Simulated scan of single mutants.
Amino acid sequence: MHGPDLVSWLLAALTAASGAYCLSRLRHAPCAPAGSAGAADSLAGGRRRLHPGHESDLAEGLMGCGMAVMALTGTTVPGEVWAWVYGPPAVALLLAAAVHPARRTHRLHHAVGALAMTYMALAMSSGAGHAGHRAAMGSPVLTGALLAYFGGYALWSGSRLLSGPGGSVVVASAGLPRACRLSMGIGMFAMLLTM
């Protein structure tokens, strides 16, 4: 990520806290066995499957922690490493969204996030310039489309956070996950903006 060090550190702290919170939510309820009332997209053979809400927590935790590391390390970690970290989950989420209609919107959103992380890493690692001042070589059209998507997502999730009774901010157990999604949307927007 290009930009002032303070911005990188603040973005890393915000996304790391959000990612850690999402990962901590995985411990609160066990995986639901296939075929139970709480399991979605159950598998044959009695295998266990993540509870539908935990699938989002896992994806958001991976995204938040990865954004924090990417914000701090910049181009020191090769883009190919990030492609291997985020490429397979993106493909898995796209396939799951295509095969199972349940939670399709969430899966597509997380797939877009994983693909955006891969795109940013590859664009930053292919940048031209001398040491310490590399310019990202991504597509302006794709970067603009991702900026519009994550900017719109941040506005939408922020409006949902404010949808409490009487317009009050809801930051209880239901509001904190929304606040984390909002912070990660803002973080993704900021990372794309500084490319």
Rank of each mutant, 00 (worst) to 15 (best):
A20H: 02
S159W: 14
M63C: 15
Y21Q: 00
M137N: 15
T143R: 15
V99K: 06
G127A: 10
A97Q: 05
S125K: 10
G74E: 07
L14W: 01
V170Y: 00
A123H: 05
T73F: 08
H133R: 15
A114Q: 09
H100V: 03
A102S: 14
A16V: 07
A123M: 13
P4H: 02
G113H: 05
G45T: 04
G158I: 01
A59S: 11
H51C: 05
G19L: 00
L142A: 11
P89W: 05
D57W: 15
R25G: 09
A12D: 03
T105Q: 13
G61P: 09
R48K: 02
S42W: 04
M124N: 06
P89K: 06
G175S: 14
G19M: 02
A123D: 05
R49E: 15
E80Y: 06
D41S: 11
L72C: 06
Y21K: 05
V7D: 08
E80K: 12
D41A: 10
G66R: 10
L146E: 05
Y153E: 03
I186P: 03
P165H: 11
R107V: 04
V141P: 07
G164N: 13
G19N: 00
L50S: 07
S173A: 15
P177M: 10
C180H: 08
L161T: 07
A111Q: 01
A12M: 04
A97E: 11
H54M: 08
Y86G: 06
Y86C: 01
T118N: 06
P52H: 10
V112T: 14
A83E: 01
A13D: 10
L122C: 02
L142H: 03
D57M: 09
A12V: 03
S159P: 01
H106C: 00
F189D: 05
L6N: 01
F189T: 10
V112Q: 11
A136D: 12
H100W: 10
A148P: 12
S159T: 03
A68R: 12
A37F: 04
E60G: 03
T194E: 09
A20E: 03
G185F: 07
G66V: 13
L72A: 11
G64D: 05
L161V: 01
A190R: 04
W84G: 09
A102L: 10
W9V: 02
L11S: 09
G53Y: 04
W9T: 02
R107K: 12
W9K: 13
A40P: 02
G138V: 07
L182F: 15
E60Q: 14
A92E: 01
G132K: 06
M67T: 07
A154V: 01
M188C: 12
L146H: 11
V77I: 15
C22P: 00
A102Q: 10
P88C: 04
R47W: 03
P33I: 10
M117L: 14
V77Y: 13
I186T: 14
A172M: 06
G35L: 02
S42R: 01
V77N: 00
V7N: 08
S8F: 00
L108W: 03
H51M: 07
R107D: 09
H106Q: 12
G164R: 11
V7K: 08
A20G: 02
S139C: 14
